[in-house]
Nucleic acid binder design. Structure first.
Lengths: 317, 317
DNA sequence: GTCACTCATTTGTCGTGGACAAAAAAGGTT
DNA sequence: AACCTTTTTTGTCCACGACAAATGAGTGAC
């Protein structure tokens, strides 16, 4: 029902209703209204029906605020800064130390907008190192430093989108051409609703592919109930979930605990990713993986427990 | 702040707060509250602070309701049906005619959960037809019939997720191995916030690849302002946007009109996808593409207008 | 019969303001 | 520095009224 999300006034100044601002900034309607009540910003004009109409400059300031808040600033401290002041705060956010030279070189290529050179450099890095090394070293470092560069305003969102797309191309291509496919265990790989990052999932899938495990990849954001139904349908041994650091730690743990109540206990649950990196203990029957190497050990452990020396299952499911 | 989204009561019956239900059903909090007020369902218990706690059966019924409403049923007519009655309504939703045999065969493979056979069959279909034919015929038919099968309850959501993932693998791999890359025009390809479907974008990218156009693929859900900034950065000639039929038609048109006000008029805007298939006219300066073939003609037209016979630009940007 | 138009009903979103849980910061102790 | 407690900040939840947008039914023209 949010069709006419933008209006065109006489002066051709586009105005956004509250639903459009929520979509474009990620700030909930409740938050937008309570900021207006408390801090006086944003202070949108009203249409003839007393509904809020935000201007483009307001929307741009809100996006800067969101970025700074995600980086640790408090709303009340920065909400009355001007847009240029906010931009300055963002650029002041330079990381403590510089990225390693080979990572920095790739970021520079991304900044140069030379797509071809960017793609071929990544491909060469993959060829030189092999898939496993490429994923566990180069890609994880790239993710970290590109995130930093985004927070410090060095690279734009669309550059990050482009990075994500091309890395997906490369990883999916590499996974497809990995020779061994489909021996035990069978791993269902996905994330819960709210976790949109796909690169982490693809990195896991790549490691599983190099280890020769059968991967049932469902992409991102599968509701827990659907995972429950998929487990018997695909006869999986393990459900692996990825939680990026964009997810609050407590939400990740709650999701794992909920899933544990839904699926049978002879199916293992593995959780990993940035959100869980500093967690000590999760729910009973949930295995925390703090790195991709951790997962390779867990895979070995599973095979020792469940497979005979000839590779056959001890108890076929 | 929605960390403890699920609770565990004495009877180990998981309960969901309103934020978790919104995430898992796609129904907004406002809608959930107004249904309760008007129709008496869902009727969640309250915790000690008078906040709603939904049960798993309620959540499952809400998901069925959502599915039926998306398929044209009215909330007031079905909201007081029991869960089995709703399930029956869904299975009664059989499509008028059967899918073509080669499509039906692929759907059967998806239903059989034999991932390997599913993948190889798709690959063979691609090899036999070539990328262009595969995309314009097989993939578009598959999208339609899998959507139908989902609405009629024949296939589960996780099956559709798996289909989407594997098709992405195959299409991205095919695009990567398409020989000619990077001649004019340069096309920026993405979708606006709210449009999450990636398959449509990849289909467009595949057609552009076979036609030898340079594609700047940003993935799904790029806010309009970011598209505005990406246009000069990547020096694109055309911005192509995809709108699946999950998006209301009016919202798609509003998005296109907004974008038209943001980016310079010597950059063309093309819009396509299910949401726009039955539209007559969009905003001035926006080209509607009703099929992938339409886009090929538009590409030809652009080249005639902007390129000299030797392939050089008439007016380099 | 189909198209276009108007009118009635249904349905989801928006408004207000108060309350308070959860997260973060500040203060105090070992 | 690590840990617990208190205070402050911050976002979410509540109720219920209003009404715009979407849908369906009714009417008339071609």
């Amino acid at each position: 029902m949010s069709d006419s999300s933008t209006f065109e006034t006489d002066k051709s100044l586009a105005c956004y209703n509250i639903a459009a601002v929520e979509r474009d900034t990620g700030l909930s309607k409740d938050t937008l209204r309570v900021w207006e009540r408390r801090y006086g910003f944003p202070n949108p004009v009203r249409d003839q029906h007393d509904e809020r109409l935000y201007t483009l400059p307001q929307l741009e300031k809100l996006r800067l605020l969101r970025l700074l808040i995600d980086h640790g600033h408090r709303p009340s401290k920065i909400i009355n800064c001007s847009t240029p002041e906010l931009a300055q705060l963002i650029s002041a956010n330079s990381p403590e130390q510089a990225a390693p030279p080979e990572i920095e070189a790739i970021i520079q290529l991304l900044l140069s907008h030379d797509i071809e050179a960017f793609r071929t450099t990544l491909m060469q890095s993959l060829m030189r190192q092999g898939l496993l090394q490429f994923v566990t070293h180069t890609v994880s470092a790239l993710n970290y430093w590109i995130g930093e560069a985004w927070l410090s305003g060095r690279i734009a969102i669309f550059d990050e989108h482009l990075y994500s797309e091309h890395l997906q191309n490369i990883l999916r291509n590499a996974i497809l051409s990995e020779p061994g496919r489909g021996s035990a265990p069978r791993v269902l790989l996905t994330s819960l609703p709210g976790e949109k990052h796909r690169i982490g999932l693809l990195m896991v899938e790549a490691v599983l592919a190099t280890e020769g495990a059968a991967c049932v990849a469902l992409g991102a954001e599968t509701p827990a109930i659907d995972i429950k139904h998929a487990v018997p349908a695909y006869a999986v041994d393990i459900v692996a979930l990825s939680f990026s650091s964009a997810i609050p730690q407590a939400a990740a743990l709650a999701g794992l605990a909920e899933l544990r109540t839904l699926i049978p206990h002879n199916t293992e649950i593995w959780g990993g990713g940035g959100a869980l990196a500093r967690v000590r203990k999760a729910a009973d029957g949930v295995l925390l993986l703090r790195s991709l190497d951790d997962m390779r050990y867990a895979l070995q452990r599973w095979r020792v427990e469940h497979l005979q020396p000839d590779g056959q299952r001890k108890t076929p499911h």
